[in-house]
Design a protein around this nucleic acid. Structure first.
Length: 473
DNA sequence: CGCGGAACAG
DNA sequence: CTGTTCCGCG
């Protein structure tokens, strides 16, 4: 009462965002742990400000993907103070809180740039929207293998969907999923990342993918934001990428990817996921869009491929959505016995495990301390453990206290077993200009590679389904 | 400015 | 736990 703070509802400054309707998923606040406290966390707050154009003057995306600069520290602090009813908040304090995120690896500081921080999306796995069907996708099935062959993953579309944030622009209203109606089921609520409105960096390119919404069997109508990729704003705009295999997660031009090689070499499933052309050294580029392809050997962009998925590339940017998964556990220590999977990737960001299973990418202030900040911190996120929040929280603590990561793990609907591939680790984007990538929504290449065909077919299938439904009704 | 320890609060 | 508040250090 002393504090006039409007606790959760509208604060003048942050209008729409704070409306009741717009809520971050439960997990985003504090799952079970702190009773009653559903206070928004600082990073959410930051994300939200970032999302609102109104605040572009005080904080905005800038620089690399996921990187933002606090243009007006005092103001941001003030806003935060208001939000938290901490009238004496100031940037020094706020920044302290931000620093704690370093350990949690949610954020890191962009050295050399004042007031500039960067979300550490290394733990964020982005998947193309198509993958929504991942539940049925071979990819996931394959995943299971990795996981030890557990049962079907429950990466339900809805779960995934729920990962999406509300679209900033278009919908202006409420969150994509006002869950509540759609009861996700018992566990459905678990981890959902609904925020990450990244793209706001100027890309008003959100729109709802109309047709795609419906198709997913398990759920109600969802919206999928697209273009929303922390790492690559707009990168997903499907534009191009004729060369990408259906299902690729990342447009090659953006990711010169280190993983690439790893992927292609992956033993099972993954390798097979790569389209023949790709795996062997595809030729991408014909059109030249080389954008930044680094000449990395083999050159293949890396893309984390998902199994082919219907409609993946063929649709317009709007069709694509991305799933963001935040995984806290860096790789589960143990790779599933039979699976080579976890593995292949492992080396990529870290120093190839020295030790049994787990080394911190950051190699905590000890020996080689690699700079966490560097974009090169490609850590691989191993999603192979999609457990729900509690359950095994074996965390790997990297560091002094293992309290680092615990909750931020966001999984797709949780149940163990369900998982995304260790795809992750978003490699550093090649393009320095996120915005650039946004704008050009190049029309799809006239001729689609054969690899797309399948997806098209599937796409068609969807239509068919829809049509049938209509007819039915 | 930025960092991280420490004590403390809710 | 997630900050908040202080503080000394570089």
């Amino acid at each position: 009462m002393d504090c006039n703070c409007v606790s959760d509802l509208l604060l003048p400054p942050v209008p729409a965002l704070w409306t009741p309707g717009f809520a971050f998923p439960d997990w985003a606040y504090k799952p079970e742990s702190s009773p009653g406290s559903r206070q928004i966390q600082l990073w959410h707050f930051i994300l939200e400000l970032l999302q609102k154009e109104e605040y572009q003057g005080v904080i905005a995306w800038q620089g690399d993907y996921g990187e933002f600069v606090i243009k007006d520290p005092d103001e941001v602090a003030r806003l935060w103070g208001i939000r938290k009813c901490k009238p004496h908040m100031n940037y020094d304090k706020l920044s302290r809180a931000l620093r704690y995120y370093y350990n949690k690896r949610i954020l890191h500081k962009t050295k050399g740039k004042r007031f500039t921080y960067k979300f550490n999306f290394s733990k964020v796995v982005l998947v193309n929207y198509p993958i929504l069907d991942m539940a049925n996708s071979p990819f996931f099935l394959a995943q299971n293998h990795f996981n030890g062959g557990s049962t079907a993953p429950d990466c339900s579309p809805e779960a995934i969907q729920s990962l999406f944030p509300r679209l900033p622009d278009s919908g202006r209203g409420t969150s994509l999923f006002d869950r509540g109606t759609t009861a996700p089921g018992p566990e459905g609520d678990k981890l959902r990342l609904d925020t990450f409105p990244f793209l706001s960096s100027g890309a008003p390119c959100y729109s709802k993918p109309p047709s795609l919404l419906g198709p997913y069997p398990r759920n109600p109508p969802f919206d999928y934001p697209w273009g929303f990729n922390p790492y690559l704003p707009g990168a997903f705009s499907l534009n191009n990428c004729p060369k990408l295999p259906p299902g690729s997660l990342y447009p090659s031009q953006f990711y010169p990817n280190p993983l690439q090689s790893s992927l292609s070499q992956l033993p099972h499933p993954f390798s097979s996921l790569l389209p023949p052309g790709e795996a062997g050294g595809g030729e991408r580029g014909a059109a030249g869009q080389t954008g930044g392809t680094n000449g990395t050997a083999g050159g293949q962009p890396a893309r984390l491929c998902l199994p082919t998925y219907p409609g993946s590339l063929s649709m317009g940017r709007t069709d694509i959505g991305n799933v963001v998964t935040l995984v806290e556990r860096e790789r589960v220590e143990a790779n599933p016995p039979g699976s080579g999977l976890s593995l292949g990737l492992a080396p990529v960001g870290l120093g190839a495990g020295n030790g049994t299973g787990q080394q911190s990418p950051t190699e905590r202030r000890g020996g080689v301390k690699q700079d966490p900040e560097s974009d090169s911190d490609l850590e691989i996120t191993d999603l192979s453990d999609c457990s729900s929040e509690n359950e095994n929280e074996h965390e790997f603590s990297i560091g002094k206290e293992s309290r680092l990561a615990n909750r931020s793990q966001i999984v797709l609907d949780g149940k163990k077993g369900s998982v995304l591939p260790p795809i992750s680790s978003l490699p550093p984007p090649v393009s320095p200009h996120p915005l650039k990538s946004l704008m050009p929504i190049t029309p799809p290449p006239p001729s689609l590679p054969p690899s797309l065909s399948p997806s098209m077919a599937l796409h068609e299938r969807h239509r068919e389904t829809e049509t049938l439904k209509m007819i039915h009704s």
